[in-house]
């Protein structure tokens, strides 16, 4: 899918997200793929906070804020309700799509997400991952990476930021034997767009996990969002993959990684990391890729 094939309409517009917000780019791009028959569900979080302040309502399509833990469960209800309503009124194509952040997905919303996948509900769940609770002021989430400084994992002499790695949401979701799951980054928007399009044509539950840098939380210039979102995939600290028909597949397998140290050092949240910390991160990256390349196609 190329730029000209996208819906010309803008469905997320005039919102109050910070300049350079990666999350808003993910939402905007996905809705341009799904079009006017997308019904968006967004839990409490950045994208709902910046888009739904009566009377400033920034979604051009049907959209609703869900409870924080309830993205997937509300999607289930929306899909079931729309299906019934459509049957009566003769509507055909619609998409129930959710946009939840990393906290809304990997922490408070994981139970509802697991339930929806288990039921096989015909919904598309997009996790825009900015790696911390940004809306409330940069607190650690289950998807905050190892070493990152947040306001609840301060970097001091004793503890160098967050001491745990990111939850492996992609494989947690895939382990449900979901019809389709994918990872993406807003740095490679075409890849993301293609995955959203692919997901929109599959029946059952679909999950896309898209890295969406937050300049405020990551400590990067607002102009660097896309560049950093590319670098995370280029340096191997993120990977682009799909899970389909019970199999994992890399959609991008870099021959060589760019410098993970350079990726980390350019961000305020990693400024405090020692050479040893960085070596730990690189070691963990290498082990992950070794496993991926061995086990996945």
């Amino acid at each position: 899918m190329n730029a000209s094939a996208l819906d010309k309409n803008e469905y997320f517009y005039g919102h109050k997200a910070c300049a350079g917000c990666g999350g808003s780019l993910a939402v905007r791009a996905a809705l341009k793929v799904l079009g006017e028959r997308a019904v968006a569900v967004l839990p409490a979080g950045c994208m709902s906070a910046v888009g739904f302040n009566f009377p400033q309502l920034c979604f051009g399509n049907n959209a609703i804020i869900s409870m924080f833990a309830g993205t997937a469960s509300m999607l289930t209800g929306v899909e079931a309700g729309l299906r019934r309503y459509a049957r009566r009124k003769g509507y055909k194509d619609f998409h129930a799509v959710g946009f939840a952040g990393d906290g809304g997905t990997a922490d408070i919303g994981i139970q509802a997400l697991s339930g929806a996948i288990d039921r096989g509900d015909d919904i598309l769940y997009i996790c825009y991952d900015n790696e911390a609770y940004m809306n409330t002021g940069i607190q650690k989430s289950g998807l905050t990476p190892y070493g990152a400084r947040t306001t609840t994992t301060p970097a001091g002499a004793n503890i160098h930021g967050n001491i745990r790695p990111k939850k492996n949401m992609f494989e947690i979701v895939a382990a449900h034997d979901i019809p389709y799951a994918a990872t993406a980054t807003v740095g490679y928007i075409n890849d993301f767009i293609n995955k959203v399009e692919k997901a929109s044509k599959i029946r059952g539950t679909k999950y896309i996990h898209v890295i969406a840098p937050c300049p405020t939380g990551w400590g990067i210039p607002v102009s660097d969002t896309v560049e950093v979102a590319r670098e995370i995939a280029d340096c191997g600290l993120w990977y682009l993959a799909e899970y389909e028909n019970g199999e994992y597949r890399l959609t991008r397998d870099p021959k060589e990684f760019t410098s993970a140290e350079a990726y980390l050092r350019r961000q305020g949240r990693f400024k405090h990391l020692t050479d040893e910390d960085i070596a730990t991160i690189i070691d963990s990256r290498d082990r992950k890729w070794e496993r991926i390349r061995k086990e996945w196609k």
Partner: peptide, 15 residues
């Protein structure tokens, strides 16, 4: 809590 979609009352140019 149901209102016309895409209803804007302020611009962002001042940012």
């Amino acid at each position: 809590t149901c209102f016309e979609a895409g209803y804007l009352v302020t611009v962002n140019a001042g940012w």
